[in-house]
Nucleic acid binder design. Structure first.
Length: 426
DNA sequence: TCTGGGGTCCTAGGACCC
DNA sequence: TCTGGGGTCCTAGGACCC
C-alpha cells in the first residue's frame, strides 16, 4: 500500500513575477510590489505586502493608483523574456527531484512523487523548496495529494502557511481543510460554475466533495464531474510529462493610444504576424488557418462598439512571413470600418502542423520554397543574435504610433542572464 | 483619460449524408 | 391526408486556466 497510491506535488512559485523583479532589485524585498500587464493595464502579480493593502489580482491599474501613491508601492511593467528565463531555471531544478513532471504554466509544475515513502513526503518537499530558493532565488509553495485537483487545493492552503508545504496524503484533516476553501477557489470552477453551485447550496470544496455523483453528472459537464471526482480522491486528470507543441499561436496587443487609421492597424498586424511567424518557425511548425481580429474598447459602453474577425484557410501550410503578412493584410482590410477608435488587434494561427509534413507536400514548388525557408532562417538568426526586429519588413512601419505603453520597465537585459546574481532570500 | 495576453478543451448546433 | 431518423463531421463560441 505504501507505494501504490498516486502522490502528486504541485510546486507553485510565490508571486512569481514580483519575485523575479526582486532578484535584480533587492531593495524591493519586503516592500509592496506589483507587476503590471501589457500596456500597464492591470495588476497581474502582487507581493504579499501589496495584497495586504487591498490591491486585487487583475484590477485595472488606474483604479489602484491612489493606493500605490499613498503607500509607495513599487510598480513594474512586464518583462516576459526575463520571467521565461527564470522559469526555465526553476523547472530545471525541480527536475532533479522528480524525473516525471509536468510543467503546467510559467510558474507551476506537477511532480510525481509516488516513489517517495509517505513518511518522507514532507521532508522531501522542504528540500525541494530550499533548493529552488538557493539555486534560483525564487520562493515556492508545495501542495501534495493523490489527485491534481487536491494538490492544487493543498497548494492554495500552503500559500498561507509559514512552512509553505501542505500534505493531504498524511493528513487526517482533509475535510476540515476542504471546508475552508471557497467553491470559486477550486481549480476548474470558474465564474459560471460558481454561480450555479452557490445557487444550489454548494459553497465550499467540502460541499462539492460530498455531492452525489448522479447529481453532478446530470447538472454539469465533464469538467464539472471530473473536478468533483478528483476532490473525492479519484484521479481523473493524469500527470502528463510529455510536452506537446502548441496547437495555435496568438499574438495580440492593446494600443498605447486608440487607433483610427487603417495604415496604423496595418503596421500593428504586420508586426504581430511577423512575431507569430517567428514563433512557429522556432517550433518547426507551419500554419494552415489565419484569423485576424480588431475591436474597439469594450469598456467604453456609451459610444459605438465594433468587433470583428475573419479567417482564411491556406491551400497548404506555410510559415513564410511574407506570404502570411500579405494574407493577413487582406483580411484586415475586409473588416476595417472607418470612424471607430480601435483599442486592440491581433492575429491567430491555428491548425498548426509539424514542418516535416509540409516538406513532403507534393504540390509545393520545392525550389522556390527552399529559397524562402533559407530567407526566413536568416531573418530569425539575425533577430536572435542582434535583437528583435533588427530585420523586419517595411509594412511593419518605423513610427509605431500605436505602440504599447511600458512606463515601469525594469529594463533588465536577459541576454546577460549568465551573469545573473543568485540571491538567497532568508 | 486609463481595464492583459496566450493558451486548451468542450459543446451545441448546423450541414450533410443515407 | 400522411412530410423520418440517425449518424458523422465541423465550427464558432464559451468556459476555464495562468
Amino acid at each position: 500500500m505504501l507505494y501504490s497510491k498516486n502522490k502528486i506535488a504541485l510546486v507553485d512559485c510565490n508571486s512569481f513575477y514580483v519575485s523575479c523583479e526582486r532578484l535584480f532589485n533587492p531593495s524591493i524585498i519586503k516592500k509592496p510590489v506589483v507587476v503590471l500587464s501589457s500596456n500597464d493595464g492591470c495588476v497581474i502579480s502582487r507581493s504579499v505586502e501589496a495584497k495586504a493593502l487591498g490591491i486585487k489580482m487583475g484590477e485595472p491599474y488606474f483604479k489602484v493608483k491612489k493606493i500605490v501613491k499613498q503607500n509607495d508601492v513599487r510598480t513594474f511593467s512586464t518583462n516576459f523574456a526575463l520571467y521565461g528565463d527564470i522559469s526555465r531555471r526553476v523547472m530545471k531544478t525541480l527536475k532533479y527531484f522528480a524525473p516525471e513532471m509536468e510543467i503546467y504554466s510559467i510558474d507551476e509544475a506537477f511532480l510525481n512523487l509516488s516513489s517517495i515513502k509517505n513518511e518522507n513526503l514532507l521532508k522531501h518537499s522542504y528540500k525541494i523548496r530550499e533548493t529552488v530558493l538557493k539555486w534560483t532565488g525564487i520562493p515556492t509553495s508545495i501542495g501534495i495529494a493523490t489527485t491534481k485537483t487536491l494538490s492544487k487545493a493543498a497548494n492554495y492552503i500552503a500559500k498561507k502557511e509559514k512552512s509553505g508545504v501542505v500534505d493531504l496524503i498524511n493528513s487526517k484533516q482533509v475535510d476540515k481543510i476542504l471546508s475552508n476553501i471557497k467553491i470559486n477557489d477550486i481549480w476548474g470552477v470558474g465564474r459560471q460554475l460558481t454561480k450555479f453551485y452557490i445557487k444550489n447550496g454548494i459553497n465550499t470544496a467540502y460541499d462539492l466533495k460530498y455531492m452525489h455523483n448522479g447529481w453532478i453528472k446530470k447538472n454539469t459537464n465533464v469538467f464539472g464531474s471530473r473536478t468533483a471526482m478528483e476532490l473525492k480522491g479519484i484521479p481523473c486528470v493524469s500527470l502528463d510529462p510529455h510536452q506537446e507543441k502548441r496547437k495555435s499561436c496568438c499574438v495580440s496587443r492593446s494600443f498605447g493610444k486608440k487607433v483610427t487609421k487603417l495604415e496604423d492597424l496595418n503596421e500593428a498586424i504586420t508586426t504581430h504576424c511577423l512575431n507569430a511567424a517567428e514563433k512557429i518557425r522556432l517550433d518547426k511548425q507551419t500554419v494552415k488557418k489565419i484569423t485576424i481580429f480588431i475591436r474597439t474598447s469594450p469598456f467604453q459602453n456609451n459610444k459605438s462598439y465594433y468587433s470583428n474577425s475573419k479567417s482564411i484557410e491556406l491551400p497548404i501550410g506555410t510559415n513564410d512571413s511574407i506570404m502570411l503578412v500579405k494574407k493577413a493584410l487582406t483580411l484586415l482590410e475586409s473588416i476595417y470600418r472607418k470612424g471607430y477608435r480601435y483599442q486592440k488587434t491581433g492575429i491567430i494561427f491555428s491548425d498548426l502542423k509539424d514542418i516535416d509534413i509540409y516538406k513532403k507536400n507534393l504540390f509545393s514548388e520545392i525550389n522556390n520554397e527552399e529559397k524562402r525557408m533559407k530567407l526566413m532562417e536568416a531573418i530569425d538568426y539575425t533577430n536572435i543574435k542582434y535583437g528583435r526586429h533588427s530585420l523586419s519588413i517595411a509594412q511593419a512601419g518605423f513610427g509605431k504610433k500605436w505602440k504599447t505603453k511600458r512606463q515601469h520597465s525594469s529594463k533588465i537585459d536577459t541576454a546577460c542572464l549568465d551573469f545573473l546574481p543568485t540571491v538567497r532570500i532568508t
